[in-house]
């Protein structure tokens, strides 16, 4: 039995970057189920069919702003939209991210800069843009405002041929600790924590597995799912909702003493 629909986020406003699919979408759905109003951002045009369908399904409490997390101007536009529609923000999930794999000798500077700009600059810009609004809004709710930065187990342990992704996710981990300390020391009512998912069945993972298949690492994606499942102590990959349940805990007042922490949700992968 989950806490689904407890309405513990009633009256709160949340923003989720990269919210159209995968872990981001799961967070959006969970926050809505708990009574929050949610703004999601992603790369699709605002009049695109996926956006229309998604908002139609999510209902009135959800809204969408097209924004590339790497762009300062886009973040300003998101701040504008959130301020006009809600005038406050209690929960920020910096989720948008991409992956990059390959031997270091074949990694282009362009590819490196692209992953750093999305996975690292994107988190930095999201936090910087919303700190003033969240500091004001955080004072209204028990436990304060909550920033949830999506890192990865690849921000904790290295994997061969994942250097760019490893570097970007490691950066998110320590960036989060530093801002947690800064907000705490300045008595700003904002907590900041990082999420470290293991292997989660999302479009990102499926596309990544497909690329490995194209490279001849395996015959079909399902073989890779089976392989990764067998190497995970819990014996399976995660469903995005299992990441959303941790994001929900961090978003709620229940986590009021938790800041600067890292929540690993990996089925035991990094315990081995």
């Amino acid at each position: 039995m989950s806490d689904l629909g407890s309405q513990r986020l009633k009256g709160r406003v949340a923003l989720v970057s990269g919210g159209l699919r995968g872990i981001g979408l799961a967070c959006v759905e969970r926050f809505l189920a708990e009574g929050a109003e949610v703004v999601l951002t992603d790369l699709e045009a605002e009049d695109g069919t996926l956006v229309g369908e998604t908002l139609g399904r999510l209902g009135q409490a959800a809204s969408y702003v097209r924004a590339n997390v790497t762009s300062e101007e886009d973040w300003e536009a998101v701040l504008d939209a959130v301020t006009r529609r809600h005038g406050k923000l209690h929960i920020l999930v910096n989720n948008a991210g991409i992956d990059l794999t390959g031997p270091i000798a074949e990694t282009s500077l362009e590819g490196w800069r692209r992953i750093m700009s999305i996975n690292v600059d994107g988190v930095f810009l999201g936090v910087r843009t919303f700190v003033p609004l969240m500091a004001a809004s955080g004072a209204e709710v028990a436990g304060g405002a909550s920033i949830i930065n999506v890192s990865s187990i690849m921000g904790l342990v290295g994997l061969s041929e994942v250097s760019g992704y490893n570097a970007s996710k490691g950066a998110v981990r320590l960036f989060t600790k530093s801002i947690a300390l800064e907000f705490a020391e300045k008595k700003m009512p904002i907590r900041a924590n990082s999420l470290h998912p293991g292997f989660v069945v999302t479009p990102l993972l499926k596309e990544g597995f497909q690329r490995w298949v194209d490279k001849g690492v395996a015959e079909k994606p399902q073989d890779l799912v089976d392989l990764m499942s067998s190497r995970t102590p819990i014996g399976r990959l995660a469903d995005p909702s299992e990441l959303a349940s941790a994001a929900f805990f961090l978003a709620s007042s229940d986590s009021s003493y938790m800041t600067g922490a890292e929540l690993v949700i990996d089925g035991g992968w990094t315990a081995q």
Binding site: A184, E242, S245, F249, M258, A261, I265, Q272
Partner: peptide, 30 residues
């Protein structure tokens, strides 16, 4: 609150983990 979260099905994919809940006491230096 964290104990109850671990008791619930919300934490189904979490195993072998150590969750710090210390108001950033060990997040770094002050």
């Amino acid at each position: 609150g964290l104990v109850a979260w671990f008791a619930s099905d919300e934490s189904q994919f979490v195993s072998g983990s150590e969750y710090v809940i210390d108001g950033a006491s060990t997040a770094g230096m002050m």
